[in-house]
Design a protein around this nucleic acid. Structure first.
Lengths: 165, 165
DNA sequence: CTGGGAGTTGAAGTCAGCTTCAAGTCAAGG
DNA sequence: CCTTGACTTGAAGCTGACTTCAACTCCCAG
């Protein structure tokens, strides 16, 4: 065990629940950083744990690592954030969560009405064509948030994609 | 334009909003199929459009293509589904949506309490450690649904991952 | 001073859900 | 018959967030 208050990767990994490989990855992306021993091994300051908690929280809210880096950059000088900082960031997060929840509830309600109305043909189905965001997006991993929360710019495109059967 | 009632890839693509490349991909995965002309070109029956609507609906609910194939397989013989079929499937979908919504609302409420209590340290933070599902999962694209809706098996693991700061 | 667990690196692999490419073939209007 | 746009294929690429691998090097308890 180390006598200093610096942490090794292994310690950070086990304390934070973030895999060592992920720590290296985060470091490459500039989300965290570490001092080095003369031999080149990483030594983390304890405050990295808070940073990791922040990162995980943001990931849970649905932010990409890129967005998280941007958020972290807004916290002045990597200092312990003030309550104002936190409030500002979390307001954005809250809006994001609200949007996701709204979209999912709309989908659920659509599903309910589909069950009720027996729209087996699925044409103009609210589940199949929630708000014509379905066909958007280029290459890369496509997943629920991306399809439902769509970019702000796309939200009002209003070109119906309802399938003609 | 074709005189028969069979559709070309282009027609299916433009009518369904699903890209031709995606249609080929779905075919490889066994989600849809097509007849062939003597020259080897695909000719789709019109009922493929309903199938595609179904697929898109399921994707919107958050099902993977693998799960969708399983769902489609439950519809007897690719026949027009009965209302009972649809009800059965959509009940599962609804549960899924409910779970996602619940998880997101819990997260939002946690966020609110974080703002209120000013838990800037983020230790034991409800956003950072919603219900210790954060550290689960192996390689591959990780995204919100996967981290929040976790596999049923994982839901009651109850091993706290709260970061000790 | 030594053994071995812990750490280092860059490169490559993984997963899902597609898209893009190159190089060729088909189909149908004129 | 010819042109031209639509279609075919397999292979490779892409995105994001990592993990895994191979081949080392470091650090420290005994």
């Amino acid at each position: 065990m180390l006598s200093t208050d610096l942490l090794t990767v292994g310690e950070v990994a086990s304390r934070s629940g973030v895999a060592a490989s992920a720590l290296r990855y985060y470091e490459r992306l500039g989300l965290i950083d570490a001092a080095r021993t003369s031999g080149g091994q990483r030594r983390y300051q304890r405050h990295v744990l808070r940073r990791l908690a922040f990162i995980r929280a943001a990931r849970n809210v649905g932010l990409s690592l890129d967005e998280i880096r941007a958020s972290l950059a807004q916290l002045p000088e990597g200092r312990t954030p003030t309550k104002a900082d936190w409030t500002r960031l979390s307001r954005g997060w809250r809006r994001r969560l609200d949007d996701q929840i709204t979209a999912l509830m709309a989908l659920r309600d659509g599903l309910d009405s589909c069950i009720g109305c027996g729209c087996l043909s699925l044409r103009r189905c609210a589940i199949s064509n929630p708000q014509d965001v379905a066909a958007a997006g280029g290459p890369g991993a496509a997943y629920l948030p991306k399809r439902l929360t769509a970019d702000e710019g796309e939200l009002h495109k209003a070109e119906s994609t309802a399938i003609r059967v």
